[in-house]
Design a protein around this nucleic acid. Structure first.
Lengths: 218, 218
DNA sequence: GGCTAGTTTAAACGATCGTTTCAAACAAAC
DNA sequence: GTTTGTTTGAAACGATCGTTTAAACTAGCC
């Protein structure tokens, strides 16, 4: 990884986070990075490939942390299910911790960049999401199912879908919705917001399971 | 509202839903609507104004339904708080019912269009969101606070933020995350998904409140 | 030094974007 | 039937997009 490539990747994160994928321009990225406009196509092939590279470069490590932390907890318990709240924490925390970093160094933008761009309905992101998140999705689906033996399987699928949607929605919209409040919510203790969100998701899922599968009783 | 304007609005919904705001092009919209390319600037002024028009045209009625339903329930109770789950239902249902319409007529695309475009970090959408949703935000914030007298105020703000983020995230990402599952989740009874999501949000909020404000005990 | 492989540069490519122009076509009112 | 104001049509505007080209530069190695 050359110095130029790193400068491009860093500039790309900011540009994608600020403007989305379609809104980001090669010229802005290269200008911000202080490199020639042709560098992106020379080093990465295309705008799409640049994004793909950034995506993998940043999220593959995060997903490995999630998978290995979950595996640790599972081995610690010798097959007994990991409690739901802990599963959710392992899924959510690695991403949110990056966003809620301390005031003295600004949060990395790539989480924002990726959450934003994933909202754009390009076919690229459907493929990329599969490449990067499929394994995490299936592993955590199994873990949640194990943690909730009384829930039926399609219901767990639905709950996981709620949880992931909420997570991406949070990353994308928190700061904007925050403005409705008139007062900053993000200034609160970072651990507190994270804990609240984990409680929110955990309670949401277990509340649904307690209410039972709706398709039988209605 | 002339016939041309309506044709443009309908075509715009599809185009914005499929491609996002930046990805949508005036030429595609006018071609789809079967009108001249200059019509949009003649009738609406600009691409931004067209979107603004569509936004208000579609969401103002939805928000009025939300506000009037909530007011009904409040008057029915003579000042006693409306239960949390009902507040959430009134907030969520008017939007989701539109998405989960029956198979014989396809769901209106504008909900998707707006959810998608709101994810794009253009300053336009910050302003538009304020114009359209501020009143709903404050009214439902007050209703949730009334329903949860034991919760402290900043915590309720946070919970509402979670709820709204989850809602927009659901609209934007459900179909894509659904693909991870390998089986369609949206085919389930529409009432069931809606009910599950309402339960999810309601349980999430009340679970957080039961756990108490985190900033005091840590 | 000369050669090579890798990298950077400035300029241009074709395509598409949102918007504007202005004359022709139209409608309704007198 | 003429006039007046509104709506369309085809064409063009300037700008910007992602990408490509070919020449210039920069090591490292014989």
């Amino acid at each position: 990884m050359t110095e130029t490539q790193i400068k491009i990747l860093e500039a790309a994160e900011v540009e994608f986070a600020d403007n989305g994928f379609n809104g980001a321009s090669i010229r802005n990225i290269t200008q911000r990075a202080g490199v020639n406009i042709a560098s992106i196509n020379y080093h990465f092939g295309s705008k799409e490939s640049l994004f793909r590279e950034m995506f993998h470069f940043r999220f593959d490590p995060i997903n490995e942390i999630r998978l290995s932390r979950l595996r640790e907890e599972q081995e610690l318990r010798n097959g007994a299910p990991v409690p739901l709240e802990l599963v959710i924490r392992i899924l959510v925390a690695p991403v949110f911790e990056l966003l809620l970093s301390e005031a003295d160094h600004p949060p990395p933008r790539f989480v924002l960049a990726i959450a934003r761009c994933l909202s754009e309905p390009l076919e690229l992101f459907t493929r990329l999401g599969g490449e990067v998140f499929q394994e995490v999705y299936e592993t955590f689906f199994a873990a949640i199912r194990d943690a909730l033996p009384q829930a039926d399987v399609p219901q767990v699928r639905l709950q996981l879908n709620f949880a992931i949607s909420s997570m991406v929605g949070m990353l994308t919209h928190f700061s904007r919705i925050e403005q409705f409040a008139g007062e900053p919510l993000f200034r609160r203790q970072k651990d507190e917001i994270l804990q609240q969100f984990i409680t929110f998701i955990t309670s949401g899922i277990s509340g649904c399971v307690a209410a039972g599968p709706q398709h039988e009783e209605r």
